[in-house]
């Protein structure tokens, strides 16, 4: 493969033109989104490329942490935008993403699986935060809709003298599982149905496939840890918003 340059990127734009032509022929109402999305994606990625190169060159721990902070905040903002009906979801998403990401990254650093080097930290954190962001949004959305849909079941249990935790236990577990299901499915099909991104990237860049696979295994475990912790924290923080300290369900009737 030719090392990608601006010419290759512009040529790859032919694919966008083909996609837009197909959409136009089928009168799909997404042509504007496709055109803007392609340009915006290009600008964002190029900007990130330069930003990451800058961080790599400086190699300052503070700059790395600042980058992580920005990534997590933006991730939490994007996730909470998908669950606007739940009050305080930004704080919940931020706390869940922060906990899941930091515990996972810290474990990898403590056990020297990776070194504190921007070249490792930034891309891996990007994967962790991206997956944690999706997990937290899915968990909050599922939990909120389950609690609203099962009001009678929950209040029946409360009326029988159960605590709020007992009364809503089933819904905690279902919601946490929802946050992890994409990762669990990924683990089931990895290498059989799809070759995941990190591994594909390394192979395309000319790395030994076995080395690429080993890195991918680390990435998979890392994401499993991050999404699990994020999901559980998101459940724990969200569920408390739905109950009072007197074990009363707090959903407007």
């Amino acid at each position: 493969m030719t090392t990608p340059g601006l010419t290759q990127v512009l040529l790859a734009g032919i694919l966008v033109v083909i996609a837009i032509a197909v959409a136009r022929y089928w009168r799909l109402p997404v042509i504007k989104d496709m055109a803007f999305g392609s340009v915006r994606g290009f600008v964002q990625l190029v900007a990130v490329g330069y930003a990451v190169r800058f961080i790599f060159d400086i190699e300052s721990p503070w700059l790395i942490m600042l980058a992580l902070g920005i990534m997590m905040t933006v991730g939490a903002h994007a996730a909470s935008g998908r669950v606007k009906s739940v009050k305080g979801s930004f704080g919940t998403c931020l706390a869940a993403i922060l906990t899941g990401s930091l515990i996972t990254l810290a474990t990898m650093l403590v056990f020297k699986i990776i070194s504190f080097d921007a070249r490792y930290i930034i891309p891996l954190a990007g994967m962790i935060i991206g997956n944690s962001m999706n997990a937290s949004a899915l968990v909050i959305d599922r939990l909120a809709s389950d609690l609203r849909a099962n009001r009678l079941a929950i209040e029946t249990a409360l009326a029988l003298g159960k605590s709020w935790r007992e009364a809503s236990q089933k819904f905690h577990r279902d919601a946490a599982r929802t946050g992890m299901v994409a990762m669990l499915n990924f683990l089931k099909t990895v290498g059989i149905v799809a070759l995941p991104g990190a591994m594909t990237g390394m192979i395309l860049a000319g790395a030994d496939p076995v080395e690429a696979v080993l890195l991918q295994v680390i990435v998979a475990y890392m994401l499993l840890s991050a999404t699990t912790i994020t999901s559980v924290v998101a459940v724990e923080l969200t569920i408390r918003r739905f109950f009072t300290r007197h074990h009363q369900l707090r959903i407007d009737r």
Binding site: L152, T156, A157, A159, G161, H246, H247
Partner: peptide, 28 residues
């Protein structure tokens, strides 16, 4: 609250039974 609710039992208009047997619901 949990103790109070056992002493002041509440029956809803549309009863919700947990998705198991009659015995499980009573023992629950």
């Amino acid at each position: 609250p949990c103790e109070l609710r056992q002493r002041l039992g509440y029956l809803f208009q549309t009863p919700h039974l947990f998705d198991r047997t009659v015995r499980d619901n009573i023992v629950d």
